[in-house]
Design a protein around this nucleic acid. Structure first.
Lengths: 156, 156
DNA sequence: CTTGCAACAGAAAGATTTTCCTTCTACACG
DNA sequence: CGTGTAGAAGGAAAATCTTTCTGTTGCAAG
């Protein structure tokens, strides 16, 4: 796969900054990377158009909004057919408690991170999940005790 | 734990919006939640000051910046002392490839997500990790085949 | 009532976006 | 060689739009 976009050192400097704080003004970003606001803005817009930048979002403190419980759910399926995989992806997309879902190689087929308010809410989620998804061979839930680190900033 | 902040329906509507797109103008947000820009802005500022909103960031496409490989590393430690835990957290904080690190309850002590460019980069990371962290009893790496879902938006 | 909170309209301050211009480099051609 | 041209990248300044702040009003609870 040849990458269509090759960020130079300046692009990367910009990305490193706004990956951490997208509220910085163009003037500040520009000063930091040694440009004036205009070319800086042009680079950012280009990266948005090319899909390098996929969005701007605010992050919330899960505790503060009463969603302090993260649970990792490892799933082994008994059905590896394309229709099952597709149906599973659709179900996952529809459940907002699932904030991450990865298909893995190896013993575990899927790993989910589920965000809920408490154990009871997780139980409710768990029942809905297992009721909706057929052919689950093994489901292992592990509760997070502490969020040691969690960042959206890629090591660019 | 009593929560100091109780968002009302309007606060939550605002959060749902800007969790998905923080580039929306106040005018747009206000129209959507049925307010004028000023009270809307005051609510957002309040939530920022109270720490409900922890930051504004841009999200990147990992593939487009050449970091398309995510690996989950499950760690079981042989040392559960406070100093070990602290030292481990410090090491994790210093390694930018580790984008998530959770301390779990149960058989697995820690679960990491590591973002790298390719298998070779992961091997390099793996060597550095195991060289720096003592008393690792078991380390299991699972490669992500597909990112089925990944969102920063909490189900508020 | 009246007190306090939340909303509003409108103005000021500040940021973004556009337009236009300059510079630099690479490359083709006389 | 020297010159002309195209394309990429930067910059200054103006226009436009947003955010932020002011003062004021309305409404609900006490």
């Amino acid at each position: 796969m040849t990458r269509s976009f090759e960020p130079d050192a300046t692009d990367r400097a910009i990305l490193r900054l706004i990956q951490k704080d997208a509220a910085l003004s163009l003037a500040d970003i520009a000063k930091d990377v040694g440009l004036t606001p205009t070319p800086c803005w042009k680079r950012i817009r280009k990266m948005e158009q090319e899909g390098v930048i996929t969005g701007r979002v605010v992050l919330l403190d899960p505790e503060k909004v009463g969603l302090g419980v993260s649970v990792f759910v490892a799933i082994e399926t008994g059905d590896h057919s394309a229709p099952w995989i597709e149906a599973f992806a659709t179900t996952v997309a529809k459940m907002p408690e699932i904030v991450e879902c990865w298909r893995l190689g190896g013993d575990v087929d899927y790993l989910l991170r589920v965000v809920v308010s408490d154990m009871q809410a997780f139980d409710s989620f768990y029942r809905r999940l297992t009721a909706q998804v057929p052919s689950l061979r093994k489901v292992t839930s592990r509760f997070a005790m502490e969020r040691v680190k969690s960042t959206t900033a890629l090591p660019i």
